[in-house]
Simulated scan of single mutants.
Amino acid sequence: MIIIRPIQQSDYDSLHRIAVESGHGFTSLPVNEELLQQRINKAETSFNKQVTQPGDEGYLFVMEDTETGKVVGTSGIEAAVGLDDAFYHYHLGKVVHNSRELNIYNTVETLSLCNDYTGTTEICTLFLSESHRKNNNGRFLSRIRFLFIAEHLERFAQTVIAEMRGVSDENGRSPFWNWLEEHFFSMDFPTADYLTGIGKKVFIAELMPKYPIYVNLLSQDAQQVINKVHEKTVPALRLLEAEGFCRRGYVDIFDAGPTVEAQTHAIKSIKESQKCQVLIGDVTSSENYIVCNTEVAGFRAIQTSLLLRETANQAVLSREAADALNVNDGDWIRLIRN
């Protein structure tokens, strides 16, 4: 069976393997032993912490194949970004150059450095090993974060964002960063991306241009990738768009990939999820659901068939499914149709 649960110390080797597999542009999982260990420690602290409002908590989940005991994927949530370290974006804007006397009117796109998303909740660190990219596992790994948020709303902000990986080649070279590197920096994209991933962001404030950048002054290659996603990120973007996420002109400062956002209460999987009481019995239904228990540190989630008795607000689970979720008759679960 495939389950999703909070990460734990024994998952370090698996997390390191996933960090290596994920490749360039996956800033939230740098291949760095100290940082990966810190990520696990932070997650364990966050899952065990009493919370009344979002703070510096970071929740990291793993997907485990219980038949092999192998961890095959991760997904995460940062409760409130930018509270300790500055959280940078470029915002796409417009400047108008107008001369009535000469009858000239030009509109020029600009990129302005900002911290507008400070304090928002970020969903992040979504990665699934190729061996398990089937049976809706990717969709499950993405959507389960919203069920966790729905069940524990006090832990998260009113706006949720996701930074989508921008365009780069197989060697990690980003056309957008190439232009910035030539004019403002003396380091390649993988190095800058890695430094950000390990928390060394001071160089951004020190070296980034302080004034808006005119987009038409960038190289053609750089202009063409602004607000575009990496080909491997297209499925993740489509999933989020189906949840109600949209672009508002914010892009990553390194690869110019888009950041998408949604109001927490309006996210489809949050809005449409429902809580039911458990009845353990025979399940004859073929309807498939994503289901989680209502715990924090003891969180468990699965995909399973169940029989929904909507009028009674009950869900009939098989014994196997109930055991995987660590629930008994009368306990509460949260679910959404898959």
Score class of each variant (00 low, 15 high):
36 L>W: 10
116 D>N: 15
243 E>G: 04
83 L>R: 11
177 W>T: 09
121 T>W: 06
154 E>M: 07
250 Y>N: 07
281 G>K: 06
236 A>G: 03
258 P>M: 01
83 L>E: 07
107 T>A: 12
40 I>L: 09
96 V>G: 09
172 G>D: 00
305 S>Q: 15
26 F>N: 12
49 K>Q: 15
74 T>G: 00
127 F>N: 03
99 S>W: 01
155 R>F: 00
204 I>R: 02
177 W>K: 05
236 A>Q: 02
60 L>M: 15
164 M>C: 07
5 R>E: 04
150 A>N: 04
328 N>L: 14
3 I>A: 02
118 T>V: 15
313 N>Y: 10
267 I>R: 08
253 I>F: 13
225 V>I: 12
74 T>C: 05
24 H>N: 09
169 D>M: 06
65 D>E: 10
20 V>G: 04
12 Y>W: 05
275 K>V: 15
121 T>H: 11
145 R>L: 10
234 V>M: 09
116 D>H: 10
5 R>Q: 14
316 V>R: 00
240 L>H: 07
38 Q>P: 07
17 R>P: 03
314 Q>Y: 04
47 F>I: 14
300 R>C: 09
321 A>G: 07
86 A>N: 12
323 D>I: 06
206 E>F: 00
68 T>P: 01
205 A>Y: 13
30 P>A: 11
152 H>N: 10
45 T>M: 11
324 A>R: 03
160 V>H: 08
111 L>G: 00
337 R>L: 08
70 K>D: 08
276 C>G: 06
199 G>R: 01
246 C>G: 12
257 G>P: 08
244 G>C: 04
312 A>H: 11
63 M>T: 11
90 Y>E: 02
18 I>Q: 00
95 V>C: 07
77 I>A: 02
338 N>R: 08
117 Y>S: 05
205 A>F: 10
73 G>R: 01
140 F>T: 00
202 V>C: 04
13 D>S: 14
